[in-house]
């Protein structure tokens, strides 16, 4: 058995799996490779040659990607970090247009949240440049971040802009996080591989 595990083909295969697992925790990677090594060893002793066993496991890069995909989605579901959630959505987006749409929505949500958060801070330092103004003749007020509105416009919130924009930042961030995690949880079972009919 140990001789088999030193088979260059097996080592090459496992090394390629390891390469495609980059970014995962060392302990998890070692555990995955240990399990695959056991599978290969046992399969090869029961009427299969090593090449056939490795072929049956599939392309090592795909296999690693499958594991890594699960890892990325796990982080997307469990994490509150926008980057982890976006990463999970990007992965799902490779498989479906609807997930690409979810990725665009989440990205817009985060961008808008960042703009509002930054504006609330910037208002403290540039009170006449940043804020919510009602331009003369316009139906809707506008958030200005690069200078006060045209003459005749009226500022709506004054210093209240700071807590309102900060609250909007927090709420939008939470909602976008919630949406992203919900989407990943809902769609993760739809990706991956499937059963094949017996020969």
């Amino acid at each position: 058995m140990n001789d088999l595990n030193r088979d260059p083909a097996v080592e090459r295969y496992l090394e390629r799996v390891r390469t495609s697992l980059r970014g995962m925790r060392r302990r998890e990677v070692d555990e995955i490779l240990r399990e695959l090594r056991g599978h290969i060893a046992e399969r090869a002793t029961s009427a299969h040659d090593v090449g056939a066993v490795l072929d049956a496991l599939g392309d090592p890069a795909d296999l690693g990607e499958e594991y890594r995909g699960e890892d990325v989605l796990d982080h997307g579901v469990c994490s509150h970090a926008p980057l982890s959630i976006l990463h999970g959505l990007m992965l799902l987006g490779r498989r479906s247009w609807s997930s690409r749409g979810a990725l665009v929505l989440a990205t817009l949500g985060y961008v808008l949240a960042i703009v509002l958060g930054a504006a609330s801070v910037e208002k403290l330092f540039s009170p006449h440049e940043v804020g919510l103004w009602q331009p003369a003749g316009a139906a809707l007020p506008r958030v200005m971040v690069d200078g006060a509105a045209s003459p005749g416009s009226r500022e709506l919130l004054g210093w209240w802009f700071v807590p309102v924009a900060a609250a909007a930042f927090g709420i939008l961030l939470l909602l976008t996080n919630h949406f992203g995690r919900w989407w990943i949880r809902r769609r993760r079972g739809e990706r991956g591989s499937w059963l094949h009919p017996a020969a």
Binding site: E35, G58, R188, G192, L195, H196
Partner: peptide, 14 residues
Amino acid sequence: LVLSEGTVYPLLAR
């Protein structure tokens, strides 16, 4: 039904 061998382990991990 036979599972494609490379798919059972990632699914078990999930």
